[in-house]
Amino acid sequence: TGEEYIAVGDSTAQQVGDLTFKKGEILLVIEKKPDGWWIAKDAKGNEGLVPRTYLEPYS
């Protein structure tokens, strides 16, 4: 379980453990880390770190 967020920009994984996503994708945020990198899952079930500045709450 988690909260749904929509990507407001494209982000390409810079290192192992990062999640690549495109603008408009809905991501499920699993954990919000205080350093600004959140753990999220995409629609295909891929999981990784995403920069919170690229996400907005999805409603």
Rank of each mutant, 00 (worst) to 15 (best):
T1L: 13
T1Q: 12
T1A: 13
T1Y: 14
G2I: 09
G2M: 11
G2T: 08
G2K: 08
E3W: 14
E3N: 08
E4F: 15
E4T: 13
Y5E: 01
Y5L: 01
I6A: 04
I6L: 07
A7M: 05
A7Q: 01
A7S: 05
V8W: 05
V8E: 02
V8D: 02
V8G: 04
V8C: 13
G9H: 15
G9R: 15
G9S: 15
D10N: 09
S11C: 15
S11R: 15
S11M: 15
S11I: 15
S11V: 15
T12D: 13
A13C: 12
A13M: 08
A13Y: 08
A13I: 08
Q14W: 11
Q14H: 12
Q14F: 11
Q15M: 11
Q15W: 11
Q15I: 10
Q15H: 13
V16D: 12
V16Y: 11
V16M: 11
V16S: 11
V16C: 12
V16K: 12
G17P: 05
G17V: 05
G17M: 06
G17F: 05
D18P: 05
D18A: 14
D18S: 14
D18H: 15
D18Q: 15
L19Y: 02
L19F: 05
L19W: 02
L19V: 03
T20I: 11
T20D: 09
T20A: 12
T20P: 10
T20Y: 08
F21I: 08
F21E: 01
F21G: 00
K22Q: 08
K22G: 05
K22E: 06
K22I: 08
K23H: 06
K23D: 03
K23E: 06
G24P: 00
G24M: 02
G24Q: 02
E25S: 07
I26T: 05
I26C: 06
L27N: 00
L27I: 07
L27V: 06
L27D: 01
L28K: 07
L28I: 12
L28G: 02
I30F: 07
I30S: 04
I30T: 07
I30C: 05
I30Q: 05
E31T: 09
E31M: 12
E31P: 00
K32A: 05
K33N: 11
P34K: 10
P34M: 11
P34D: 13
P34A: 13
P34V: 10
D35Y: 03
D35N: 10
D35S: 07
G36M: 04
G36R: 02
G36C: 04
W37Y: 12
W37C: 12
W37M: 14
W38N: 00
W38I: 02
W38G: 02
W38Y: 06
W38S: 00
I39M: 09
I39N: 04
I39S: 04
A40V: 13
A40Q: 01
A40K: 00
A40E: 00
K41I: 14
K41H: 07
K41P: 00
K41T: 08
D42I: 02
D42P: 01
D42K: 01
D42A: 03
D42C: 03
D42T: 05
A43S: 14
A43P: 07
A43T: 10
G45V: 00
G45A: 03
G45R: 02
G45D: 04
G45S: 03
G45F: 03
G45L: 03
N46Y: 06
N46S: 06
N46E: 07
N46K: 07
E47Q: 13
E47G: 04
E47F: 13
G48H: 04
G48Y: 04
G48C: 04
L49E: 05
V50I: 07
V50Y: 01
V50M: 03
P51L: 14
P51Y: 15
R52T: 07
R52F: 12
R52D: 11
R52M: 15
T53Y: 13
T53S: 14
T53H: 14
T53N: 14
T53F: 12
Y54G: 07
Y54M: 15
Y54V: 13
L55K: 01
E56G: 03
E56V: 11
E56R: 07
E56C: 11
Y58K: 08
Y58W: 11
S59L: 13
S59A: 12
S59C: 14
